[in-house]
Design a protein around this nucleic acid. Structure first.
Length: 461
RNA sequence: GGCGACGUAGCCAAGUGGUAAGGCGGGGGUCUGCAAAACCCCUAUCCUGGGUUCGAUUCCCAGCGUCGCCUCCA
């Protein structure tokens, strides 16, 4: 079985054939204008898993992710708040790292910024003009969509669609309604650069074309982003890049993640209906949130609900419980458990090979967890530990760790131990009523007691 | 209006031309002093109507519904 990836450009699942070593992966990052919401978390966690799985499969991956640290929205918001735009975008860039680090999204190898790539952007704009793909007007420099034959291929839009759908104010200077700015003239903003076409800043799409070219080259393996970036962002990026470099295809696999919906509508900063990732993480452990986000295929729409996250929390706790299983028979035959382990790995890989089907992979891991619990009593400690190791390492490929609630720095521990001992004596004296009361009262304090054949164990609920 | 996606049990969610993973919840058991945990069993005519087929939830058409994109967007 080989890895196959759905490519938005063709709409088909295609065998993965990297251009070279390392695999080049570019993920469209945030425009840091507000705190990252669950839609961002969904996208970045899935992209993280894609990278992790490629590495698990033995590919070296070079992962670049940008920040569009200057754009119209950032300028508007900063101005409304009386703040410096770059200071504003830095603040939310930090907010991104803060939350994604906690979610264990691995850091990209490089995070290019628009503001640090202005000379390169200007070079590319000039190149497009020289090649006849872009032209200056009184408001900026525009890409001439008609000069790019395949325009519309990525989003499946024809020329007529584009013309009919052009809902922005008509700009008489534009040669075609589909044309877009690669350079915007602006003398008002504090954030602007002098250019051969006048003072201004880059248009929205050109930065990615430039940064990809400068960091990864003219052709890359994987380009990821949310489905809402397909058009116009990626469509325009593709046109610019191929027009500038002449290399085709610009991207081997266009990978788009589904959108997160809340109350039946897209979660978005602009709609004001977002739940921030940080808010969820105040009472949901990062691993639970990851498991929740990965419970939906990356291309699907996720209908966010707190109820579903809570359901995931219970499931996660069951996986954690698997790590508590202990072998019960030193002489036991571990071969059955071992074959369960290899079956689980096989199921996991075949699911992930099939367009990174994390939900199916997770299903296989739950089944394996059940097998470990079932077989542990008849297996040796070493066999059980080995199986648990397989489980945790496969979960690790998804970036999920199994953690007991933290009790390390718990002042109450000696007192709880004392109560448990006391209760044990009561049980031996068959004082069930008192013993049960201690158990119930501790339970109310989130301390769960379990009476096992060889003694009572407790843990934080 | 144009283009596209989706509609699977109470909830979340995979999947397949030959009668449907997994998780949560619910029911019943085993174990236990009783519990808890764990394990076992049960819990879906796959939106509707046509068509293709020996056979469709899976392919095609239509309808209904939901959502997305159509230059803010992950």
């Amino acid at each position: 079985m080989t890895l196959a990836i759905t490519n938005t450009l063709t709409g088909k699942k295609e065998p993965f054939k990297p251009l070279g070593d390392p695999v080049t992966m570019y993920v469209c990052g945030m425009t840091p204008k507000d705190r990252p919401h669950l839609g961002h978390a969904f996208m970045f966690v899935h992209m993280d898993v894609i990278r992790r799985y490629l590495e698990y499969r033995g590919f070296a991956v070079r992962h670049i992710q940008n920040f569009t640290d200057i754009d119209d929205k950032i300028i508007d918001r900063a101005r409304a708040a009386g703040r410096d735009p770059l200071d504003w975008s830095r603040e939310y860039t930090e907010a991104y790292f803060d939350v994604m680090d906690r979610l264990r999204v691995r850091r990209a190898h490089e995070y290019p910024l628009v503001t640090a790539n202005i000379p390169g952007i200007m070079e590319d704009v000039q190149e497009l003009i020289d090649a006849g793909h872009a032209y200056p007007t009184s408001t900026g420099v525009y890409f001439d969509a008609a000069t790019f034959e395949d325009y519309g291929a990525l989003s499946g839009r024809t020329e007529e669609d584009g013309a009919a759908g052009a809902r922005i104010a008509v700009d008489d200077e534009k040669r075609d309604p589909r044309d877009w700015a690669v350079w915007k003239l602006d003398n008002e903003s504090s954030v602007a650069w002098d250019s051969p076409w006048g003072r201004g800043r880059p248009g929205w799409h050109i930065e990615c074309s430039t940064m990809i070219r400068r960091t990864l080259g003219e052709q890359i393996d994987i380009h990821g982003g949310g489905a809402d970036l397909m058009f116009p962002h990626h469509e325009n990026e593709l046109a610019q890049s191929e027009a500038a470099t002449g290399c085709q295809p610009f991207v081997s696999y266009w990978v788009h993640t589904g959108l997160v919906l809340t109350d039946g509508e897209k979660m978005a900063h602009s709609l004001g209906n977002f739940t921030t990732t940080a808010d969820v993480l105040t009472d949901v452990p990062p691993d639970v949130l990851r498991l929740y986000l990965l419970g939906v295929h990356y291309r699907s729409t996720l209908q966010f609900s707190m109820e579903a996250i809570e359901q995931t929390r219970t499931g996660y706790d069951r996986l954690v419980a698997v790590t508590r299983a202990r072998g019960g028979n030193a002489e036991g035959d571990g071969s059955v458990l071992e074959s369960e382990g290899s079956a689980a790995r096989q199921a996991f890989e075949s699911a992930m090979d099939d367009d990174f089907n994390a939900p199916r992979a997770i299903g296989a891991l739950f089944e394996f967890g059940r097998a470990i619990n079932r077989l542990a009593p008849s297996c040796s400690a070493a066999d059980v530990e080995k199986a648990q190791g397989t489980l945790t390492s496969l979960l690790g490929v998804l970036g999920i760790e199994l953690r007991e609630p933290d009790t390390a720095s718990d002042d109450a521990t000696p007192f709880i131990d004392l109560l448990v001992q006391l209760r044990q004596q009561l049980r031996e004296a068959r004082q069930w009523e008192l013993a049960d009361r201690i158990r119930d009262d501790l339970d109310a304090l989130d301390v769960v007691l379990e009476d096992k054949p060889d003694g009572t164990v407790w843990r934080r609920g």
